[in-house]
Amino acid sequence: MAVQAADLSVSPVQLAEADRTAQQGIPVADLSPNAPSQYTVRSGDTLWGISGQYLRQPWRWPQLWGMNRQQVHNPHLIYPGQILYLVQRDGRAYLSTNPPGGASGDVRLSPRIRGNGGDGEAIQSIASSDIEPFLIRPLVVDQGTVDTSARIVALPDARVYMGRGDMAYARGIAPADASLGSDWQAFRPASPVLDPVTGRVIGFEAAYEGSVRVTRGPEGPNAVTTVQATQSLQEIGPGSLLLPQPQRELIRYVPHAPDGEVEGRVAAVYGGVRYGGAKQIVVLNIGANAGLEPGHVLALSSDGGHVADPTDGNRAIELPDDRYGLAYVYRVFPGVAYALVTDASNVMKVGDIASTPR
């Protein structure tokens, strides 16, 4: 399967911020107490991990790591073997690939793109092993997807389920999409995912069943396509829905806070459980329609709620929200987004708040 790099475009806001911080840096007080003065990037490192080494607030990475955009096409690519230098001057901190005291004497944030090799050598934003199954499989699908997806309608010899190597017949695959050898995911919509605020159904958790490959294009008046199972994790049979297999994307979005105020809720924890913790995948009830984009880091908080104050005649008072962790958004759709919980000091649950970190 081909591996494609994610869209590495830089927003105008990020460009402006990088230009500004290339001159200003950040306050030294915002550095992590153990921030290294020099660090050699290693294979297996991630942007998030390096950010955490240097910053108390890892999502402020763009403020520490600027770029000279006249020379650098993409400021987010960092490669194993590169040496990062932390420069502190006049109470401000800068990160550079140029050692302090260079010939020019002007310390600028200027990451460099390697002349040899491709972008595939660059480190990723977060560990792909943490989200590997969710890069190419549907986690939540909306009603429109359920209603319009292609589906398996029959198996040869009146069999009920198919295993790896077995054939089946499907309908709903358009001729333009039914090229020989094209791969499709088989899934069934499982339990509904509810918006914890409104209670409405925002999607259905997709139970991934396996993958099939087109072996013969649509034929006959009913446009029946023949497929063969290439992977079978659960029982695939008539009624199983099909979606095109997307290409796996390498996650290289720079971790950063949203430009404005964003607030949503945890609508689901992967696996159908209500509670979770670090390294788990969550579904948020907001997406691109709320301004979310891949690379956004959100703070996770439990709702403080209301209690009666016994010292004031049991008057109802609102408690402050209790922030306990961070979530890295890596896949965004119009009304939902997937995020990896990078750290959590408390138990995470459905209904918790996901908002712009402060």
Rank of each mutant, 00 (worst) to 15 (best):
P175T: 13
A223Y: 04
G239L: 10
I78H: 13
A178C: 13
R200L: 12
Q245T: 14
R331K: 15
D183I: 15
P75E: 00
V201T: 15
P75C: 05
L250F: 06
S240N: 06
G117H: 13
S232W: 04
V212K: 03
P75I: 05
V341A: 01
V266G: 04
A339Y: 05
D157W: 10
G165P: 06
L233S: 13
T215R: 12
L139E: 08
R315L: 10
Q38K: 12
L31N: 14
A267R: 03
G199E: 08
P36D: 12
R200V: 13
P75H: 07
P33N: 14
V3S: 03
Q88C: 02
Q63C: 07
G199P: 10
P138G: 07
T226W: 05
P238A: 15
N68E: 13
Y324M: 05
Q185W: 13
H296W: 02
A168N: 01
Q71V: 13
V266Q: 07
A176S: 15
D7F: 05
P80L: 09
D30Q: 15
Y324P: 07
G199Y: 08
G305W: 06
T356V: 00
D45M: 11
V13Q: 14
V347R: 09
I236V: 04
M348D: 06
H256V: 11
G102P: 09
I173P: 08
S32F: 12
L284A: 04
A223P: 01
Q24F: 05
G287D: 06
A174D: 15
G335T: 07
A327S: 13
L326Q: 12
A22I: 05
R56E: 09
S125P: 02
I136K: 06
L292R: 09
T198G: 14
S149W: 02
V266N: 09
V254K: 14
L300T: 10
L300F: 09
L233N: 15
L194G: 00
A278D: 11
E121C: 00
A190I: 01
A308I: 00
P189T: 03
L194V: 08
D177E: 14
G239H: 10
G220N: 12
P27C: 11
R69Q: 11
E132M: 04
G260N: 11
A122K: 10
Y324H: 11
G277D: 09
Q88G: 01
T97W: 00
Q71G: 00
T311G: 05
E219G: 05
R331I: 01
L84G: 06
S301W: 03
G295P: 01
D119K: 11
Q4V: 15
A223C: 00
S149T: 01
Y79T: 02
G260M: 05
A5H: 03
R137N: 15
R164V: 15
P334R: 08
Q143G: 02
I131K: 04
G117S: 14
S32G: 14
D352M: 07
I131H: 08
I236K: 01
L84W: 08
V72Q: 06
A207K: 12
T145F: 00
A6C: 14
I131E: 05
A316G: 03
A158L: 14
